[in-house]
Each structure stands twice: as structure tokens, then as C-alpha cells.
Design a binder for these strands. Structure first.
Lengths: 209, 209, 209, 209
DNA sequence: CATGAATGAGTCTTCATTCAT
DNA sequence: AATGAATGAAGACTCATTCAT
């Protein structure tokens, strides 16, 4: 749970490389070279390549779940406000840690890293249940519709954001914004995504347009 | 473009295995063993592992683009009908060829197979442009809203479907439908997805709820 | 059970090297280099280093057990004749395949190759039981003593031969026969061993000197 | 020659582990972990793994030679008494320090630790020469036969004991004594070995049965 | 046309040892 | 005096591909 500086450096290097070429597409030597450390150091610090992969998730997933929980249990916000904040935080998280999320998607796509897949799915399921509670709360208060498929709704949020992130370069090209600085472009995308998904959720959750 | 029976057998075996363990997670020997052919046959028929991967896309993407084009240019349907059919066809395609789509997502996630990635993105871009034209047509007819972000809209469609497909087992568990036959469950999911995405698109494209 | 020429060549090379430096003291590359084959060929033919070790035993132990069995069941010899032949055959076997027997002793000394150890011990136990029957037969006929510890007797045979083989160079030096050709020396040793052990067995088995 | 407590602890741990898995089958880290000391301490105290191995022999062989010498030169015993005591002491030594003797046999079997092998052989040779003198003394006194092959005789002693020690578990099984406490069983084996070898030596050395 | 045999390059991991502290 | 951190070398093994047949 607590990694030293060199470990974090290795983890972040691995994360970026895994995102770019996949788990099996990157050798421990690639990681070591890129991180400027000795090959043996990866086994030394993490035990194995697989364990290094797990360390990436340990580092990144650590407080993610906690954040969702505190957000949902916050009494100072209405259910809709919470949903909107959930959306914005998800967008921020994914856009800020694009590499990690790419890695996470590949893990979900294959059965290569079963231990990690299991952990990721458990996290997903728990989050979904928390959100389901939140929906129920909103339904009790009469602000949300009766029939809501929480999973599909979350899949829309997650899927839209990930599809968008995955195709950022093409989105840029399609919108003729190739010249725009990356940071500015991503900021725009984030805003658009936020508005887009919030309006979708409004349509899903409430009775009005 | 024209593969013989044995080639198709190899392609489909490879597709399923790549979907399950990723491109680098599967060796040509794995494929040969599973397909019941000699290892050397893969190089013999396709030239290389990479080329076999390309063959998968050649086989699967072949008529996909064409289908979108004819659909959009069909004069017997309203723009909204076309959009709805586009959604249903996408859902059907993904659910029916889950393996292939998993493979395609992994290709989009990494820079491992650049030639394929490029082809897939070109296809995507062309589809997006066709849909954009369709939207414009609907806007001219006054049935669609003025401001529509086509890319985000398509990302919602693609992302929702793929996220749902990727997490089918967990969706099943979450809904307490573990006992239901897979076919029936997938049929239900398809219907739900259809309604879900269509209502989202309605909210995106039209002014009413 | 049936190895091709190249496999036998590898097996015999490995046998000699393992005898000289131990299982862990020899790398598959050592074996490959010495045998003049590619490193990958060892995995290709045997699966692994461990399996190669097992192949050595498969090749060498194959007919050994059978030989003991037919010898013991041969009706044309008296029990004492059988024992004497058993001794001579053991001496011949060990002296002729010194490398293999060195390998076998190291296997018996450590718990490194448990599968092989188990097989070797099973063989030993079966042989001991056969010899025990032979002893009983001799006891019934009144030519052997009543009380004979078969295991200790066999340990004397096996142990004497192996100790002698292991220290051949020092035996040579001790007897001031350093100049004698190796073959001649070994022939002498075999004769001496034969006489030595037979007289020991006579002392163990019969009542007269 | 003078080791401190921690060194002896390391030596004895190494001895046990080497006995179980061979020199190359055990890493210095294994030894350090098992002995509860730092990995670097082994290099620190002994210089290298090889030197640690030598230290084992330094510790164990130290007074062994001396013992044989004083025994043989003891004037209060007849040659036969000396031989019998030699046998019993050898049995005791091997059975009490089984680990060390296993290590020593592996050293004699391979050419991996030449320095140690040389020392062990020198010791063996010197012992053999001492025993040869003892035999001559007995021959002069007319209690021993004229023709005795000292080396073969000693090989019988050493080989019988080591073969027996190596196969203790199987001896136990063969005799249906699996339930007997190890200590009691070993005590019985020692007694049997003593009688067995003494009677063999009697046969070898004297003219009567 | 199809394949069994073979291989060089590359995989992850472990190793004994060193060195600054 | 003792050790945690670090590493170059070597370990066994797998890989996609080639080639003679």
C-alpha cells in the first residue's frame, strides 16, 4: 500500500507502457529501460511482472472506492447533485489517468490477469450497488423515475467516457481542432462530456427533458 | 477477401482466442492446436501472426461499412427510423460477434497493431461522417435538434454497448439472473439496450422527452 | 520409451554432464553446446530440463528391472548361483554405466527430483522383494542361513560397488597402479569386486566360511 | 577453525539445506532466511557460498581424522577390537551427522567443489593408510588373513553405512516398522549395522566364519 | 500442397555478490 | 560490525518463423 519513490516511478512507467502496448506487449526489460533502473529491480521490488501489474491497481484503485462512498453518503447534496458530481469525478479521473484506465479496460477485456480482473469487478459491483441505493433514495423523494436500469446507466457513463478517451485523436481530427494544444482540447472534451452525460442521465432519471 | 474453409476455421479460432487472452497472450501454436491444424500452416496461409490478425478484420469488417452506407442512403425511412435501425444493427452485430468486438477494442486500446488500428479508425471516421450527414438531414427536416455532437453520441452508443458486453456476467449477477440460459439473457439485454440507447438518442436528437 | 538418435545423443550427453557436475550444476545450454544442438531443442524434444532427467532414467532403467526378474525366476540355477550372477551383473552394470549411476546416487541423496526418486525407490523396493523371495527359497532348500537381513545385504552390495566406483582414481593411486590403462584397471577392479562381494554374501548367507 | 555462534548457526543451517537439496539447489538467500540472518552476512562471514561449503567441512572434518589416528595408535586394544571400534564409530558418526555425510557424498560424486573433494580424498587416503598399517599389524600377529584388500574392505564399511542411511525410510517400510519412533528405529538400525559389518569384517580379515 | 523438425531471439526470473551506510 | 539496496550475469523456457521434404 505504501510505495517508495523508486517503486512509484517504476509503477508509472509500467502503467504508461502497458497502456500503450498491452501487458504482454511490454517486457520487464522495456519497463526497466524506460524507468532507468536495473531489470532485476522489478522482481526485487514487486516479485514479478504480474505483481507489478497488481501494484499499479493497488496504487490507483486505493482511494477510488472510498471517494465514491463518501460522495454518496454526503448529506449536503441532493441525489441529482450527487449523480452530477459522480459524472464529473469519473470524467476527471479517466481523463487525468488515461494510461491507467486504458490498462484497466484491457484487463476487463481479457482473462489474462484474473486476480486483478476479480478485484476490478468487485469494485465495480460495489459502486453499482451504492449508486443503486442513491437512485432508490431519489425515487423515494420523487425526483427520479420509478424504472431505472442502474447498470445500463453506468455503462453509458463509463462507456461514453472510455470510448471518447480512446478516440481522442480522431475526435480532434473530426472536429478540425488538430492545431489546438492537447490540454485545451482535453479541457473542452471534458466540458462537453460533462454536459452530454449529465443530460443523458437527466433523461434517464427524470421525467422531463 | 476470399478465404477457404480452413482459413476461415483458423481465423475464427484465432478470433476467439485473441478475444479471451489478447493478441500477445496467444501463441500461433495455441491457435494451431485449437484449430487442429499444423503450426506451420498459419505462416503458410497468412504469412505471419500479424497478417492473421489483419485477416480477422478483413473477414469481419468487410461488409460492415457497406451496411451502414446502404442503410443511411435508404430513402424509405425517416432519419429517426434510420438512427433506430443503426442502433439495433450495432447491438446485434456486437452481441453476435462478441469475440471479434473484444479483439477490436483491444486493438483500439493499444498501439500494437498500427495497420489494423488505422483501418478501424478510418472506418469509424467514415461512419461518423455518414451519420453526421444523416443528422444534418434530420435537422433540415426540423425533426432533430440544432446542436448535436455526433461523435459523443456515437461514443455513447458504442461505449454503452461495449461496456455492457464486457460486463455481461456481472450484469447477470447484479440482476440475480444467474440461472437464466445465456441465450435468453442476452436476448433480454439486447432488448433493454435497444430501448435504453434509443431513448438516449431521442433525448440527444429531439426536443421532447 | 523410444527415443530417436538425436534424443539419445542428448540424453547421453546430459547423463555425462549431470554425473560430472550435478543436475543443478549443468545448464541446458551446457548440454546443448556439448551435444552440438540448439538450446531450444532440449525443450522441443523433452519439454523441460526435468523431463530430460526423467528421460535419462526411462532409457536406463527400462530393462533393468526386467533383467532382475528373469534372473530370479530362472529355474536352471541354484539360489547361490543366482545371487552370484546378481552380483556380477550389478557390478557390470554400474561399471559400464558409471555416469548414469552417479546421477542415480545424487538423485537418491537429495529431494530435488522427487518424481524420479520415487520411481527409483519403487524399483529398489521391488528388487529387494524379489531377492527376499530368492533368499527364502534358498532357506527352504537349507542352503541359506535362517536369519538374513536382505536390505543390509543388498546395501552392502550396492554400497561397496558405488563407493568403489566413486573412488576409482584414489583406489588406483593407493595401489600404485596409476600407469595402468583405465580399461585394464577397471577390469581388475571388477574381478576383485566380484570376488570380494561374493565372499561377503557367502558369509552372510551360508554357515561356512 | 574457530567459528562464533552465528557462524556455526549458519554452517549447520547450510549443512541441513545442502543435504536436502544439494549445493546448487540451495541459494544463499535460502540459507540466510532459514538461519534468520541477513543475506549479506554469508558473504560477510565466509566470503562466498563456496567458502561456506568449505567451512562446513572445516567444522566437521576437523577432529575426525585425529580420532582415527588416536584409535589406531591405542595400544590397549587388539587389532580386531580396533577394527570393531572403527566400525562402530563410523556408524555413529554417519548416523549422528546424516546431513553432513549426505553433503560429503554429493561432493564425492561430482567435480563441483574440487577444493573440498581434494581435502576429503586426502583424508580418506590417510585413513586408508592407517587402517592398512593396522591390518599389517594384525597380520604380523597372525590374527588376520594374509590377503586383504583394505580399500574394498573400507568401501564395504562406508558403502554399506551410507546406502543404509540414504534409504532409511524405505528400510523402515520394507520391515513394516513405519510406526516406530525415528530415534528408536535408528538405534535398531545402528545395532544391526554394527553386527552386520563386524561379521563381514570378520569374514574378510580372519579365516574362521 | 502441406508439414515435421529445427532455431535464434526473446521471455521472466533467480542468483551470488557488492557497496554505501 | 552488520545490513538494506541494488545489480550483472545466468538460469530455464517460449516464441514466431523457416525450410527441406
Amino acid at each position: 500500500m505504501d510505495f517508495n519513490d523508486k517503486q512509484i516511478q517504476i509503477i508509472e512507467t509500467a502503467e504508461a507502457l502497458f497502456a500503450d502496448r498491452g501487458y504482454d506487449g511490454i517486457s520487464v526489460r522495456d519497463i526497466a529501460d524506460e524507468a532507468g533502473v536495473n531489470v532485476a529491480m522489478i522482481s526485487y521490488y514487486f516479485g514479478s511482472k504480474e505483481k507489478l501489474m497488481e501494484a499499479i491497481f493497488e496504487l490507483r484503485l486505493g482511494n477510488m472506492q472510498m471517494r465514491v462512498e463518501t460522495l454518496i453518503k454526503d448529506d449536503s447534496m441532493t441525489p441529482l447533485q450527487k449523480m452530477n458530481l459522480l459524472i464529473d469525478e469519473h470524467i476527471d479521473r479517466v481523463m487525468q489517468k488515461q494510461c491507467f484506465h486504458k490498462v484497466m479496460y484491457t484487463v476487463q477485456l481479457t482473462n489474462k490477469n484474473p486476480a486483478i480482473l476479480k478485484a476490478a469487478n468487485a469494485l465495480k459491483l460495489r459502486s453499482a450497488k451504492l449508486v443503486a441505493e442513491l437512485i432508490k433514495e431519489g425515487q423515494k423523494k420523487g425526483v427520479f423515475k420509478k424504472k431505472v436500469d442502474v447498470i445500463l446507466m453506468l455503462n453509458t457513463m463509463v462507456g461514453t467516457v472510455s470510448s471518447t478517451m480512446m478516440s481522442l485523436p480522431y475526435y480532434k481530427e473530426f472536429n478540425n481542432q488538430a492545431d489546438m494544444p492537447q490540454e485545451e482540447f482535453e479541457s473542452i472534451v471534458k466540458r462537453r462530456l460533462s454536459i452530454h452525460i449529465k443530460s443523458l442521465f437527466k433523461a434517464i432519471l427524470t421525467n422531463e427533458a
